[in-house]
């Protein structure tokens, strides 16, 4: 039950983040939307692991209790670090772009870039 609710909420979060990434004109807002998508994916994996039970998989030798599935949790540890790395690198590129064009608006950046090329 808990897993299903978390599943639907995280899919809604992914939808919101994707729409924000495609429609916003500001680079920082795009990066924030990417963060929303990454957090929703982490929540989705947590929901998948808690479908059967929400007891954490720290076993005391008793296997009769229904534990949460440890495999999605272990997989998402990798995903969290990768998303952290991705956010860091995209923020660095945003700072570099701001230092060069002094704006965060992608329309202005594109027109400045086109003018530079000519």
């Amino acid at each position: 039950m808990t897993g299903n609710i978390i599943f639907y909420i995280s899919v809604a979060g992914m939808l919101v983040g994707t729409i924000g990434m495609t429609l916003s004109r500001n680079i920082i807002k795009k990066i924030l939307s990417l963060g929303i998508v990454e957090t929703s994916i982490n929540t989705l994996y947590t929901g998948i692991s808690s479908r059967k039970s929400i007891i954490p998989p720290i076993v005391n030798g008793d296997f009769s209790i229904a534990y949460a599935d440890p495999v999605p949790q272990a997989v998402i540890i990798t995903g969290i670090v990768i998303s952290f790395a991705l956010l860091c690198l995209s923020l660095v590129f945003a700072i570099i772009i701001y230092n060069k064009y002094h704006t965060m608006d992608i329309g202005t950046i594109e027109s400045n870039f086109e003018r530079e090329k000519e």
Binding site: P57, I58, V59, N60, Y67, P70, V71, Q73, A74, V75, I77, T78, V81, I82, A85, C88, L89, V92
Partner: peptide, 30 residues
């Protein structure tokens, strides 16, 4: 006892090592 640690440091060790490599490359890149 901790099944999550058992998975990411024993049965899925390749994942962890590539994760560490990605993290190092990000630190270097930044």
């Amino acid at each position: 006892p901790n099944a999550v640690t058992a998975i990411y440091l024993e049965t899925r060790l390749y994942d962890t090592i590539f994760e560490v490599i990605v993290f190092s490359i990000t630190a270097l890149g930044v």
